[in-house]
C-alpha cells in the first residue's frame, strides 16, 4: 500500500440490541485498489458498507473516506462515495435514462453535465440502445448494470458494490466482473462484498474475511494462504518410484511432506503450481512412468475453513 488510504476503518462497532452485527472491524483500502469483503450470510458485510456510505450510524469506532469522517461530515463524504446497493435500487416503471437522470439530480449534478454523463455511462454499461426502455422490461443482468451505473454518475472517489452478481447467470456475471475491472483500471477504488470465493480471488487485490461481525483476516490471497500455513497438494500416479527419489523430493525446501500411496505419491507443497515443473523433470529424468498429475492449490476457502472450521459455500442459501 502506498500513499494515504482512501478508506480507513478503525474499530467499527454496530449493535442491534443484543446482536453485534459489526464487531471492532478495522481495515484500510489504498487508492486504486479492489478490496473484497468476503463472508457468509449475516457476516456483517452489508452493515459495514451501510456505515461507510453514511446510511447507518455506527455504535462506535470511526470510518474515513477520502480523508472525510463519514459520521461527522456525512454530507461531504456522501458526495465522494458511489453506492451500489445489494438490491436493484431503481424505479421499475421509469426508463433507464430517467432513472439515471433522477439519481444524478440527487447528487446535485447540473442538467448539462448530467445528460453527458448519463450517455457516457449508458455506453460504458452497453445499454445505450435500451436507454428509453423501462427498467421492468430489462433482464436481471441489465438491471444490475444500470444499478452500477447509477452509483457512478457523480464520479466518486470510491465505489461500494454490495454483492452485485447475486442471482444472475455466469455469462452476465463475467460481464459485470469485467466491467468492474475496467472501472478499476481507470483508477477507481472499489470496495466489493461477496460470498463467492472465486469472485474475490478473480477480482480483488486484497481481501478481508468477515465472520459473525468480526474481521478474521486481511491480506492478499497469497498472504492469507501462507499465514495459515496452507499447502498445495501434488498427487502423482506413477510406476518406477524409488526411495532415493522420495528423499530427493522431501529435501526440497518448498515441500513439507511426502507420502507414498498405493499407486504413487503425494507431496504437500507451499506453492504447488510453481514446483510442478521441477517435480516432473526430475521424475521423468529418473525413468519414472507418470500416469497422471493432480495439483490442488490452496485458496481462500482453505483460509476460511482453517479460521472458522466451516466451509464458506456450504452455508449459503440460494439467493435470488
Amino acid at each position: 500500500m502506498s500513499g494515504e488510504p482512501v478508506i480507513k476503518v478503525r474499530n467499527l462497532v454496530k449493535r442491534y440490541g443484543e446482536l453485534v452485527a459489526v464487531n471492532a472491524v478495522s481495515f484500510e483500502v489504498a487508492k486504486g485498489e479492489i478490496f473484497g469483503l468476503l463472508g457468509p450470510n449475516g457476516a456483517g458485510k452489508t452493515t459495514t458498507i451501510s456505515i461507510l456510505s453514511c446510511i447507518t450510524p455506527p455504535t462506535s469506532g470511526s470510518a474515513m473516506v477520502s480523508g472525510i469522517d463519514v459520521v461527522t461530515d456525512s454530507l461531504t463524504a456522501r458526495s465522494k462515495i458511489g453506492v451500489v446497493p445489494q438490491e436493484i435500487a431503481l424505479y421499475p416503471t421509469l426508463s433507464a435514462r430517467d432513472n439515471l437522470m433522477f439519481w444524478g439530480r440527487m447528487y446535485g449534478l447540473p442538467d448539462r453535465t448530467l445528460t453527458r454523463r448519463v450517455d457516457e455511462l449508458l455506453s460504458i454499461v452497453q445499454l445505450s440502445d435500451r436507454a428509453s426502455s423501462r427498467i421492468d422490461t430489462f433482464s436481471g443482468g441489465m438491471k444490475r448494470r444500470i444499478n452500477i451505473a447509477a452509483g457512478l454518475l457523480h464520479r466518486p472517489d470510491v465505489l461500494f458494490l454490495d454483492e452485485p452478481t447475486v442471482g444472475i447467470d455466469p455469462q452476465t456475471r463475467r460481464n459485470i466482473l469485467d466491467l468492474i475491472k475496467e472501472l478499476n483500471a481507470e483508477g477507481l477504488t472499489i470496495l466489493y462484498t461477496t460470498h463467492y470465493l472465486e469472485e474475490a480471488e478473480f477480482l480483488c487485490d486484497r481481501v478481508g474475511i468477515m465472520d459473525e461481525g468480526k474481521m478474521i483476516a486481511v491480506g492478499t490471497r497469497d498472504e492469507l494462504t501462507e499465514s495459515i500455513g496452507a499447502t498445495g497438494v501434488i498427487a502423482v500416479r506413477a510406476d518406477g518410484l524409488n526411495d532415493a527419489l522420495i528423499d530427493w523430493l522431501a529435501a526440497l525446501p518448498a515441500v513439507s511432506k511426502v507420502a507414498r500411496s498405493e499407486d504413487g505419491l503425494t507431496l504437500n507443497v507451499v506453492r504447488g503450481a510453481d514446483l510442478l515443473p521441477t517435480v516432473v523433470e526430475k521424475l521423468a529424468g529418473s525413468g519414472v512412468d507418470i500416469h497422471s498429475l493432480d495439483v490442488t492449490v490452496p485458496n481462500l476457502e482453505s483460509v476460511f475453513l482453517h479460521l472458522t472450521g466451516r466451509r464458506l459455500d456450504e452455508e449459503h442459501d440460494e439467493k435470488s
Binding site: 453514511c54 461531504t76 458526495s79 453506492v83 440527487m106 447528487y107
Partner: peptide, 14 residues
C-alpha cells in the same frame, strides 16, 4: 423495501 430509499440516503441530501 426496494432499496431506493437506501440509495436516497446515500446521496448527499437531507
Amino acid at each position: 423495501e426496494s432499496g431506493t430509499y437506501e440509495r436516497l440516503m446515500a446521496a448527499p441530501l437531507s
